[in-house]
Amino acid sequence: MVRYAFYPGCSLDVSAVAYDESVKAVCAKLGVDLVPIADWNCCGATEYWGHDALIAQALIARNLARIDPELEQVTAPCAACYLNLAKVDRMMREVPAAAERVNRALAAGGLHYEPGRVRVRHLIDVLYEDVGRERLTEASTGSLDGLRVAPYYGCQVVRPFCDNDDSEQPVRMDEVLTWLGAEVVEYPVKSQCCGGHMSQISENEAFELIRRLLDCAHRSGAEVIACMCPMCQLNLDAYQGRVNHHFGTGYHLPVLFFTQVVGVALGIEHDVLGIGREIVPAREALRAHGATVVAAAEGGRDVP
């Protein structure tokens, strides 16, 4: 069994704690062994790059350097964290002078990172490729029961460091959720931008982008949106009420992390998956498909 270094990132600690809970529960159930990076630090999100480039790179590389030397792969569920780890590893591989600068900074803390030493992967990739169709289908309890899901990938998982899925119309989450019994709806805006941090600095600009994403999910008949990024989840879920207010619309679309949907399919109890932490509640949609019943009967006891 491959073990993976695990980089949770700051959002999973707090605002996206449901992502953390569901990732851990799903991975435990599927036998995916996650080893958190010891004393990891914030990856700097997008903010650091526009502030100070070498500090941005060094902060990210510190996490890469702290990965247990026995482990050869690292996985991160947060889109921005994944992108940052992949970006700095690739930059250090391709531009030796940049790698040398980063390592000079790391050396001040007694650390070193050999470019390319670990393979950086998003969790969807681990589920899709390493766990794979057969094991996922076997583990499914059928409790999704045709739940209509809009697969929302956002930007940073599929661009620009993803070399095994399409960056415009990716399919890996669609397939994983289909294997597990969801009905994945057509969602042509699946990799469009949610506005990122614009919801905090210039909300009218973000609101229009968010509205478009909600509208398309609504028209496609989705009951829930599944996403893979804490920022996307926050924008679509927490700001949904504000967007409705702003445009006079009445969207009611629960936004779950894809791992929560996977967890429901695996029969893991909703509380264990952090379902209920979303601002627009998902329970009703799940109940309509009998998911609660199955989940409660199966229990989540194999998850600590």
Binding site: V14, D52, I55, A58
Partner: peptide, 27 residues
């Protein structure tokens, strides 16, 4: 919804991190 903490979390080896950040600035 349990999605906000009023207190910051600190990493343990802040000294190490600060040494790296300072060195990056110096470079």
């Amino acid at each position: 919804h349990g999605r906000m903490s009023l207190r910051p979390t600190r990493i343990e080896s802040l000294d190490e991190l600060h040494a790296i950040v300072d060195e990056a600035r110096t470079i």
